[in-house]
Simulated assay, not measured.
Amino acid sequence: MRVIALVAAAGRGTRLGASVPKAFVRLRGRSLLERSVAAMINSSVVDEIIVLVSPDMEAYAEEMLGQTGLLDAAVTGVPVQLTLGGGERADSVWAGLRTITDEDAVVLIHDAARALTPPGMIARVARRVLEGAPGVVPVVPVPDTVKQVDGDVVAGTPDRSSLRAVQTPQGFRLRELRAANEAYFAAADPGFTATDDASLLEWQGVPVVTVQGDPMAFKVTTPIDMTLARTITDEAEPTIFEVPGD
């Protein structure tokens, strides 16, 4: 059974405050996208990678990944292709899913902004789907007390012992994920907004199981996140190319 990774890199990432889309911001000489693609390759479980990019960054993404060797399957052993994403993350993932012809494939959906995700965690998610789970999400405990609010008034305090923060990649059997996406995009009013891919399976009543996540799989969203990523990353590589406008 083939494992195909979709790496979402079409978002703008405005909260990071960079002059380029978040996936193309450099972290010690390598963009977040490069690091995410490399992690998929290094997991040794991924057979193909589809990078979802915006139309205005397609040419640059191809040049960047090509110059660093990540598009050379003869070198990496894993073919990488680019596919145009949509306006929202869910649109991008749906566009990527429609390019996959292997109906029996396992699909990993990953955010390029989680650039320091360990390859071992990626493999852990994929293996659980290969063992038969229709949907798998990596999770970590929620360290803070969480409040439910109504406006600016506290409405309740959920028991955090049953709460988990969800990371990516999330893994799925393609058939279940494709069917859930078809139903979601066909519905005039699905009754909710899909904030992650697993929520679509939950909506369809398909079980989603958890595996252990990793603190390194945090999402680079704000300048503080980037500062943290720079602090804990000691891999400094020469910059081969210049980021437009950077």
Rank of each mutant, 00 (worst) to 15 (best):
V140A: 07
P138E: 08
V107L: 12
A90I: 15
D102E: 15
E48N: 05
L32N: 03
R26F: 05
E48L: 04
R124C: 01
R89P: 02
D102Q: 10
T76P: 10
T145F: 03
P141V: 12
Q81I: 14
A61F: 03
V146G: 12
S31P: 10
G132S: 09
L130A: 13
G120P: 08
G77H: 05
V37A: 06
V139M: 08
A115C: 15
V140P: 01
A74F: 03
P79W: 02
L97R: 00
T145I: 15
A126I: 03
V154N: 06
V93I: 15
E48M: 04
V149W: 12
A133I: 07
V140H: 01
Q67R: 12
R28V: 11
D150L: 12
E131N: 08
I50E: 03
A59Y: 00
L33G: 03
V149S: 10
S43D: 02
V125T: 09
E48Y: 05
V154R: 01
L32Q: 13
G66V: 12
V154P: 08
V153M: 11
V37N: 00
R35I: 12
P118M: 07
G151P: 11
P21R: 00
V25Q: 02
E58Q: 12
E34M: 13
G132T: 11
T101E: 15
L116K: 02
T83C: 14
V146S: 09
A105V: 12
I49A: 04
V80D: 04
E103D: 15
I49E: 04
A105F: 03
D104L: 11
V78K: 00
V25C: 13
V146D: 13
D111E: 15
A90H: 00
L108Q: 05
A73V: 10
E63V: 13
T99C: 13
S19A: 15
R114Y: 00
M57Y: 10
G66R: 00
L130R: 09
L84Q: 14
L16I: 12
T157Y: 09
E58F: 06
V37Q: 00
E58T: 11
M57A: 13
R98T: 14
G77K: 01
I41Q: 01
L70G: 05
V137M: 14
G85P: 09
V154H: 04
S92K: 04
P118W: 02
L116T: 10
S54C: 09
P79I: 07
M121Q: 14
A59L: 12
G29Q: 06
R30H: 06
M64G: 01
P134Y: 09
I50C: 04
V146K: 03
D111Y: 05
